[in-house]
Design a protein around this nucleic acid. Structure first.
Length: 154
DNA sequence: GCCAACGTTGGC
DNA sequence: GCCAACGTTGGC
């Protein structure tokens, strides 16, 4: 099982929204490195659900991958903001995964707390200039995150 | 293949 | 709203 951190702007789609729908197809990733991660995700992989671009950035929930490496349908839809005219069904460019909620994190594990944790030094989320919306979390960083999450999982 | 211009991300 | 950092685009 791999672990991932996936970012969402809560104004667009929050962890509470994920809980409300139960299962969501995670589309619209248009960065090649993030796409490559989506392609190697597996059902059951753990997801740290991160709220970005908001008043309190941080990890708001745990989720898991449902299905992975799904061809992202929005790339073929001219009405979609994620339409990619260079993508064809025969040669798709972009992929999606479905995710489902597992646990709420209360209170949110804030970015400031993550930065204060020495064990997370070097974690891509905290590195200058890293803006990937899908980040792989290695065992060491996962251990540090899980430690910070203790007692906050609902 | 280089590189300037532009757009986007995302914390603050 | 600001701005740093980065990816992408497109002219040459």
């Amino acid at each position: 099982m791999r672990r991932w951190l996936m970012k969402s702007e809560p104004d667009e789609f929050s962890f509470a929204d994920l809980c409300a729908v139960g299962l969501e197809l995670w589309t619209g990733v248009r960065n090649y490195q993030a796409r490559n991660y989506l392609r190697i995700q597996q059902p059951g992989d753990l997801v740290y659900f991160y709220h970005s671009s908001c008043a309190e950035p941080g990890i708001a929930g745990l989720a898991e991958i449902g299905a992975a490496a799904i061809v992202d349908p929005t790339q073929f839809d001219p009405a979609s903001a994620y339409f990619d005219p260079k993508a064809t069904p025969a040669a798709p460019r972009w992929y999606a995964s479905s995710i489902r909620p597992l646990r709420r994190v209360v209170p949110t594990l804030r970015l400031t707390e993550l930065r204060a944790q020495p064990a997370l030094a070097g974690f891509a989320l905290l590195s200058r200039g890293t803006r990937l919306s899908v980040i792989e979390v290695n065992d060491l960083y996962a251990q540090a995150l899980d430690q910070l999450l203790e007692g906050r999982l609902l």
